[in-house]
Design a protein around this nucleic acid. Structure first.
Length: 533
RNA sequence: GCGCUCGUGGCUCAACUGGAUAGAGUAUCGGACUUCGAAUCCGGCGGUUAUAGGUUCGAAUCCUAUCGGGCGCACCA
């Protein structure tokens, strides 16, 4: 819709035109302040320019009115145009907001270490990434969702060791000397029991089999992670194991040419030439690669797979790491501007206004699975989608258990369910509703319809700005408009029943499509929890 | 110390990326069910957009400085 108006104006004025939603709907559906920017070149007052420009329209059937107000040019879409659009999407509901973008994108997210279950911080990145994925795919982008599994390095050794120690302490009842850091929590107890069942008790004391044990345990942890993600409607297309990459090291290193050099028995990457604070070690004196080495091979492999664009979602504590990876991509001979890193900030949880208790049982973290169990996947997804991912977020789990308007999930679901029950109650057939011509609408009805038809613009904007909260904001405000409309205007039995229901069908479709893009299922009926029992 | 980032009603967040009178929710106070689901709606209170300068037709948004919070500054991942 906005695109069509935009391209029309671009043709007319021969330049990009800023289109905005007027603060006050009585001004029209769209407006542009273009006269202000033209004022300087044309050496005329904005008011005059706006008047002349608006007078030059009038004949276009897309608009029913074009007016100038204090330098702004306001456009009002014609009812015919809105009606055609509404009819079209109601007969092609799957196409609402769809587009046909052609880019291939690799989206890497979560990538949590396979050494323990996901915690609440991971959940945020997971939801953010998956929401972007859904939005992008809806727009037609060919996106691969990838999980990078860090199954190499110290942490994996530590995983093996931790299981052995856990087993020695709890199963063999031996005195154990615990290292400074090790993995703990309920899942470790489970893992240990399973390991003994699988390998026999000998595995607990055989130092030479630590790695074997660790690699087995990793698979088990990954299953747990995949399961937790699945419970939140998050699924990956591909998993890349860090351990599988090192065979390519020599080839990748020679590919970087001058980008790497040897010094003090170590190998460095000259990332300081590319804007990093200093050069970084990629291979230690003893020949063991650093974490960065793995990431270099991984990114080389990503670029060899030839996508048009790459998005990484990282925890915000890794932001200092961006320059060195970009430097590596540059040295590998690829365009590092194709690599985009989005950060996901910290989450702090409250319960009844107090800090949420970290469970000792889980190893002093808040588990994603616990929160999903407590407030549900829908609520969790909604909260995390509703705030910019790169700013810190604090929320109270109790807020999202309430079943009233203070809980946006219920508020939006209720709006959708209200429409569904209304339509079910009406004597009119779907045919009659969809065929009715939208003419002579009240200002409120027109405004509601227009708002519902705005969804495609919101999807586009939310994806391209990577700000998925624009979608949740939109759904909240559309639901609010619906509730108000419902309250003000009697629908069943009114002489406009068919028209009004047609508009409401568009609203319902918009809400449902939006919720699905958030990974939330729209309900046709609301059921109170206590009624279920 | 250096780098990144954020600072908007009591609280949680918006503001179309430089545009019209800075908006929602929550809290609080007060109203609306013999009518399509009150899981809803309406109204009141609450702001010098951290502070001080600057840029221009126009600034919460851009620039500079100051103050305050967060994160990072590994041969850990």
């Amino acid at each position: 819709m906005k695109q069509r108006v935009g391209s029309l104006l671009r043709e007319r004025f021969d330049r990009d035109v800023v289109l905005e939603k007027p603060k006050d709907r009585s001004f029209g559906h769209f407006s542009t302040p273009i006269a202000f920017s033209l004022a300087k070149e044309l050496r005329k007052s904005p008011m005059l320019i706006a008047q002349e420009l608006s007078a030059s329209f009038g004949e276009a059937d897309m608009f029913s009115a074009v007016e100038s107000v204090q330098g702004y040019i306001n456009f009002r879409l014609s009812e015919t145009f809105l009606d055609e659009y509404a009819s079209w999407i109601l007969t092609n509901p799957d196409q609402f907001g769809k587009d046909e973008k052609v880019q291939k994108i690799l989206l890497e997210f979560v990538s949590a270490n396979p050494t323990g279950p996901l915690h609440i911080g991971h959940a945020r990145g997971a939801v953010y990434g998956d929401t972007l994925l859904r939005l992008g795919r809806h727009l037609g982008y060919d996106i691969t969702a990838e999980y990078y599994v860090n199954d190499a390095g110290n942490q994996i050794d530590l995983l093996g060791l931790s299981i052995q120690l856990e087993g020695q302490a709890t199963i063999l009842n031996q005195e154990v000397e615990w290292p400074e850091s090790f993995y703990r929590g309920e899942y470790m107890t489970d893992l240990t029991t399973k390991a003994v069942a699988h390998f026999g008790v000998e595995i607990l004391t055989d130092v030479t089999r630590q790695r074997e044990l660790a690699l087995w345990a990793k698979e088990s942890v990954m299953e747990l992670i995949v399961q937790t993600l699945g419970a939140t409607n998050i699924h990956f297309d591909t998993f890349v194991n860090e351990s599988s990459l090192y065979a390519q090291w020599d080839r990748v290193m020679s590919k970087m040419g001058e980008g790497v050099y040897q010094k003090d028995e170590k190998i460095f990457i000259a990332s300081s030439q590319k804007g990093d604070d200093s050069d970084r070690v990629v291979v230690r004196e003893d020949g063991r690669p650093t974490y960065l080495a793995g990431d270099i091979i991984y990114h080389n492999q990503k670029f060899e797979r030839a996508y048009d664009h790459y998005i990484n979602i990282w925890g915000a504590d890794h932001h200092g790491y961006i320059p060195r990876v970009k430097a590596a991509v540059d040295f590998l001979g690829y365009d590092s501007s194709k690599l985009e890193v989005q950060l996901s900030q910290m989450v702090s949880l409250l319960k009844d206004g107090e800090p949420y208790k970290m469970s000792k049982r889980a190893g002093n973290v808040i588990l994603m699975s616990d929160i999903v169990e407590e407030i549900g996947s829908d609520a969790l997804r909604f909260i995390f989608a509703s705030k910019k991912s790169d700013t810190a977020l604090e929320f109270d789990v109790e807020e999202f258990k309430k079943q009233d308007s203070s809980n946006p999930i219920y508020y939006i679901q209720y709006a959708h369910a209200r429409i569904r029950t209304l339509v079910a109650k009406s004597e009119l057939s779907t045919q009659e509703i969809q065929k009715s011509a939208l003419k002579g609408l009240s200002a409120d009805a027109d405004s509601l319809l227009f708002e519902a038809l705005l969804l495609p613009e919101i999807i586009e904007d939310a994806f391209h700005s990577r700000q998925v909260q624009k979608l949740t904001d939109y759904l909240k405000s559309l639901a609010a408009k619906l509730h108000k409309f419902y309250y003000d205007c009697r629908i069943i039995g009114s002489e406009d029943e068919a028209k009004l229901l047609k508009i409401l069908e568009v609203v319902a479709l918009s809400l449902k499509t939006g919720m699905n893009l958030l990974g939330i299922e729209a309900k046709d009926r609301m059921v109170r929890e206590e009624e279920e029992a």
